[in-house]
């Protein structure tokens, strides 16, 4: 089903950011994407802030999946 496919895709993309497979993405991980993605460090920071719902400085797979679902215009329960 669609939600599961999206959740799986979100997981794949999450792993691109969480290269050490810690289970979360921190600001430092995000800044490492500078050079890999056509975004400025400021934009990466902005992305991090908007995905980090509770603002605790750690981006979980759940938060990431929600953000990805929102980007696709869907509500996804991981």
């Amino acid at each position: 089903d669609m939600k599961r496919i999206i959740a799986e895709k979100a997981r794949e993309l999450f792993i691109c950011c969480d290269k050490e497979e810690k289970g979360f993405v921190c600001r430092r991980d995000m800044q490492r994407l500078d050079g890999e993605l056509p975004l400025t460090p400021e934009q990466l920071e902005e992305v991090f802030d908007s995905l980090d719902d509770d603002g605790n400085g750690f981006l979980t797979l759940e938060e990431f999946t929600e953000g990805f679902g929102g980007f696709l215009g869907l509500n996804v329960d991981p």
């Binding site: 895709k9 794949e12 993309l13 691109c16 950011c17 890999e36 993605l37 056509p38 975004l39 934009q43 990466l44 902005e46 992305v47 908007s50 995905l51 953000g67 990805f68 929102g70 980007f71």
Partner: peptide, 28 residues
């Protein structure tokens, strides 16, 4: 889309981020 330009909407930046990640994953 305005993503990538200064003053782009937050939504645009997010879309740019996910699009870039997706094309990085599926690209060559």
């Amino acid at each position: 889309m305005d993503a990538g330009k200064p003053g782009a909407t937050n939504e645009g930046v997010l879309a740019n981020f996910f699009n870039s990640l997706l094309s990085k994953k599926s690209g060559p």
